[in-house]
Amino acid sequence: MSVDRAIARRGVIDALPLFVPAIPFGLVIGLAITNTGMNPFVGWSGSWLIFGGAAQLTLVTLLGGGVAVAAAVGTALVVNARHLMYSAALAPTFQRQPRWFRWFGPYLLIDQLFALTTVRLDDEPDSFRAYYLAVGATFWILWSVVVALGLLLGPVVPEQWNLEFAIPILFIGLLVLGIEHWPELVAALAGAGVTYLAAGLPNRTGLLVGAFIGMIAGFVAERIRRE
């Protein structure tokens, strides 16, 4: 077995345990697509067009909830803005890669892939590429399958279960995992509070206002923390 093939196998093995926490997420997205009455194929296409669970779930629930398309798209994009940081962090490593991979690689750049490759930035270019592609492909295939499974389960689940409430619960989980210091908590509370106060704004644009003010609040809190 060649070295690169062994590294690719390592990538698949590393990706599998990280995929487990994504399973309920994918299933809930499938259920959400069913609940919103969106065309199932269109909803599912987000799995490979966007390839990012939080943004896909945001888009599906907002479009289904009657939010203006521009506000839904804007919010989903804001959710994914963190990928700018990943792009900047991996840019030096990618300079040693062939052109096709510099263009294609970013398509697969999800949170888990970033986390796994940050410890391999100094690998040989061929090894890095084999590992990166193996992790990315594993997630890409499994993710599309799990969201499709959620679509199949959706019509079977009784409405009385109120399973749509699983979505805010998952967001609470994501939020808690992202809080390392109190400024993050300030950002979250300000985002939630302002959205609550602005709930009456047309086309539910209060969401974007809340998110923006929350970000500013976190930024200011960080400044205070550093002083």
Partner: peptide
Amino acid sequence: PAVLGALI
């Protein structure tokens, strides 16, 4: 965190 708080 700000977007998640707002989204919830």
